[in-house]
């Protein structure tokens, strides 16, 4: 694949709570390539959104980034560590290099000012003139299939949920960033709107060639849009690999459980298996493999020893003691 845009190395972050440190992101590493779409999947509460806020350093004051590097390569080849940027530097960096589509489109727009004002505000903060901002925005609104002039002059409450989501998408692309982080961009809208937003997204990606970090708990959407899938559990990336590999030949018991829990058209509801329990307490995480308490394949070794990271086929990285069993089980399901 092409060159790496964002390289995350051993990133750890925790929140300070009354009982102690909540280790929400634990030793996470991955590379995001130019034009690649990486989907991070996992249950609620497994650290997806925390990871994503850490990447753009928009954490609440109770959070602390403990270690790691966020190496970003600009279009001109210049490399920088996002964690080393000054406050001013970060302000200039965000949105022009990495932008974001937040969860919950309904509240992401200021209700008392016009869309045009939000466009101008964003442009002004990064040195774009009003005319340039306007031209860019109208162009992008066209691309996301909105009526440019009407939307540009509208107030947020005059737009539907799907329209607002597309406005946010256009706003995220206003400064032509290389990376767009999307946190569950389709959860707040109905299934047809979801579809049209995904279509728009694919088209934009082809046309403008940016990388996407897609955070979702919807496996079907992740499968449709992503090139690479990362499974996150208890603040760690437990499996990462090409989309086909991870979905058809998963090697981590948690990924397998997620796939078994996802409804499919081909099987009946009785064949869905939910995962018992809920993600572990991250203040005192379980020893060994953090998933072992909920894992039906767990054995003694899982409770004591942290599984090592193993790499298959060059780009499929997994840490699970029972990756062979997982692989075999999945194979049987696919064949049957």
């Amino acid at each position: 694949m092409s060159n790496v845009v964002l390289s995350v190395k051993n990133l750890s972050m925790s929140y300070l709570a009354a009982r102690g440190r909540v280790r929400a992101v634990n030793n996470v590493s991955f590379d995001l390539h130019a034009g690649e779409t990486l989907a991070i999947i996992g249950e609620s509460g497994c650290g997806k959104s925390s990871l994503n806020l850490t990447l753009i350093r928009q954490l609440p004051t109770s959070a602390k980034i403990e270690s790691g590097q966020l190496l970003y390569t600009k279009r001109d080849g210049q490399q920088l560590d996002i964690l080393q940027l000054s406050k001013k530097g970060l302000q200039k960096f965000l949105w022009s290099e990495i932008s974001m589509v937040f969860q919950g489109a309904l509240n992401a727009l200021n209700p008392v000012i016009r869309i045009s004002d939000m466009v101008y505000d964003t442009g002004k903060a990064h040195g774009l003139s009003k005319a340039e901002s306007r031209k860019q925005a109208l162009d992008l609104f066209e691309k996301v299939r909105l009526d440019p002039m009407r939307v540009f002059r509208a107030y947020p409450h005059e737009l539907s949920g799907g329209m607002r989501q597309r406005v946010l998408l256009a706003l995220a692309l206003l400064l032509r960033p290389q990376v767009v982080i999307m946190d569950e961009p389709t959860t707040a809208v109905d299934i047809l709107t979801q579809r049209s937003i995904l279509e728009v997204l694919k088209e934009l990606r082809r046309e403008l060639n940016f990388s996407i970090l897609f955070i979702s708990h919807d496996l079907a959407i992740a499968a449709e849009i992503a090139d690479t899938i990362a499974t996150m559990y208890a603040g760690e990336i437990v499996e990462i690999g090409p989309v086909y590999e991870v979905f058809y030949h998963p090697r981590h018991a948690y990924t397998l459980s997620l796939l078994d829990a996802a409804p499919r058209l081909s099987v009946g509801a009785e064949e869905l298996h939910s995962i018992p329990g809920s993600p572990p307490d991250l203040i005192e995480p379980p020893a060994g493999c953090k998933f072992h308490e909920r894992c039906r394949l767990a054995t003694d070794i899982c409770a004591h020893t942290v599984p090592p990271i193993e790499i298959f086929n060059g780009n499929h990285r997994v840490s699970c003691h029972h990756h062979q069993i997982v692989r075999k089980e999945r194979e049987e399901v696919i064949q049957s």
């Binding site: 302000q91 974001m100 937040f102 969860q103 919950g104 509240n107 992401a108 200021n110 706003l171």
Partner: peptide, 10 residues
Amino acid sequence: DYINVAKARG
């Protein structure tokens, strides 16, 4: 949310 978004937008 819109306050956080505004901050992220710089």
